[in-house]
Structure formats: C-alpha cells, structure tokens
C-alpha cells in the first residue's frame, strides 16, 4: 500500500513537470533549428538588418520587428481605454447581476477564432479604409483595430479580477469620507489594483505580439519599415507563417531564427508580468 502511494506520487510529480519540460523542448528545438543562421549572419545583422531576401540569402528582420512594434502599439492605443473602461464599469459601477452576465460575454471575445477576426477585418475594415482614408485596405491601422479587439478580453478580465481583489474596506473608508464612487475608484481602488492591471496589459501585449493568422489577413505583409499607419507591414509572426510552407534549408532556419526572437520576447513579457503580479502579493 505504502509503496503504491509513493509510486503514484512520483508519477504525479513527473506529470507536474510536463509544462516545464514542454517549454524546454520548445526552446531547444527552435534554438537548434534557428541558431545556426543567426550565428552565420551575426546577431546584430540579423536583428538590425533591413533586408529580408531569402533568395539572395539576406536575412534581416528589422522591418518585422518594427512591424510588430507598430501593430502592438496601435492595438494597445485602441484597446487600453476601452478595456479599462469595461473593467471599471463591470467591477465598480454595474450591478453584480449585470457584471455576472457581461464579464463572460466579453470573455467570449477571446473564444472567437483569430481567422474570424482577420476575416472581419477584410470584409468590414478594408472597404471603410479604402473609401475614407485611401490605399488598398491592408495596413497597420486595420491590424491594430482588430488586434485591439482581440486583446481586449485579456486586459478586461485580468483587470476586473484585480479590481475585485481590492478589499471592500478600502472603498468603504473612502466613501465614508464623502468621496463619490468615481473619486474612490480613481484615488483608492485603481492605485491598489495597479500592479494586477499592469500585469494584464503586459499579457495583452504578449497576445498582440504573438497573434498570427488575423494579422496575416489584414496587415498587408510587405517587408518595409512603415512610416504611416496606412502602410502595410509584416510582423515577426507573419514572417514565419507566410514563408514556412515553401521555405527550405537556410531560409527555413531563418524562419526558426525569427521564432527564437519571438519566443524570447514573449518569455520576457511573461516573466515581467509574473514579477509584477507577484509584487502585489508581497506588498499586501
């Protein structure tokens, strides 16, 4: 009996390490495939190079890095006010009943497949942009709006949780001093929930940087360094997805190398979000 129990515990310990094992496997395989080309080109030329031309063996991903930054910044600009407003409304102003219905409703946005988002961008945003702003349609603006909607549930949901985690006594204290609800939220609740909200925003950024299919469908995918929000761009993720099907040899390695950069960025964002979220616990 005792022996069995020990066996079970060891078995469970092994399963418990599965996520870490998978993470390591992912890291190892992507590094193995992608590192040779980075070393050959040189880290600096790979990251800062502006030429991406696999036929001429030119592998510089600077335009894609800029593309990812532009689109992510645009998505945040669009998403941040909206998602924070939703979170504050649902956590602080709506009746609990409405909050209970609307929170999962907004979270449902996260369940809609990214290809559907991309498609909505194509059929709804492209004509609007063509008619009112000019250009063919696919551009940073379209991708930012769609990505903004896609990361909205992440930021909203985590923010609601952080707001609700603020002890009720904080609010009572402020309200008892004659503050209005909004003053209380602004001066007491938001500062107290700050680290959780920031962690949520960082995770939202991670989602935006990592999104692929929706961006492929609406960002235009041209390898240029953009200077207007109506320019088409290619991101790190779409660079991989666009060329993976026909890439071979060094070209394919360069795509994995793009994956390495993406993986490192995402891991850093995760670590930062985790550290910030943890700080909240300690200061309490």
């Amino acid at each position: 009996m005792k022996y069995n129990e020990r066996l079970i515990q060891s078995g469970l310990l092994i399963t418990a390490f599965s996520t870490i094992a998978i993470l390591i496997l992912i890291g190892v395989f992507i590094l193995k495939e992608g590192l040779p080309v980075i070393l050959k080109v040189g880290i600096k030329d790979f990251i800062c190079g502006v030429n991406w031309s696999p036929i001429e063996e030119q592998f510089g991903i600077f335009p894609m890095i800029m593309g990812s930054i532009w689109i992510t910044a645009g998505a945040l600009l669009f998403s941040l006010p909206l998602s924070l407003a939703c979170a504050i409304y649902l956590a602080e102003f709506s009746t609990p009943k409405i909050g209970k219905i609307l929170k999962p409703t907004i979270e449902l946005l996260a369940g809609i497949p990214s290809v559907v988002y991309g498609f909505m961008g194509m059929v709804i945003l492209f004509p609007l942009i063509r008619n009112y702003l000019g250009g063919p349609g696919p551009c940073i603006l379209a991708a930012s709006i769609i990505l903004g909607i896609m990361i909205l549930p992440t930021i909203t949901s985590i923010s609601i949780d952080s707001l609700q985690a603020v002890p009720y006594s904080y609010r009572e204290g402020s309200l008892a001093l004659g503050a209005t609800r909004w003053q209380t939220v602004k001066m007491v609740v938001l500062p107290a929930a700050r680290s959780g909200i920031i962690a949520g925003i960082i995770l939202g950024v991670g989602r935006a940087v990592g999104e692929t299919m929706a961006v492929i469908m609406i960002a235009g995918n041209a390898v240029i360094i953009p200077d207007s929000i109506l320019d088409p761009v290619r991101t790190l993720t779409t660079n991989i997805a666009l060329e993976m099907n026909f890439a071979t040899g060094e070209h394919r390695q360069a795509l994995f190398a793009t994956g390495i950069v993406l993986f490192i960025v995402i891991m850093l964002l995760n670590i930062i979000a985790n550290l910030i979220a943890k700080r909240k616990v300690i200061t309490k």
Binding site: T19, G210, I240, I266
Partner: peptide, 24 residues
C-alpha cells in the same frame, strides 16, 4: 516554478507551437 511554467506555456503564441510541432 511549476505554476510559472504553466503561465509561460499559456503565453506561448500558437505560431511557435506550430513551428515546434513541425520540427518535433
């Protein structure tokens, strides 16, 4: 550590999973 690993895995973009699944 395990929980952190789980959070990180949750944040890995699907294209990376695609790349990884493809090689492995």
């Amino acid at each position: 550590i395990i929980r952190f690993g789980t959070e990180c895995l949750a944040g890995v973009p699907s294209i990376i999973f695609g790349l990884f699944g493809f090689v492995l």
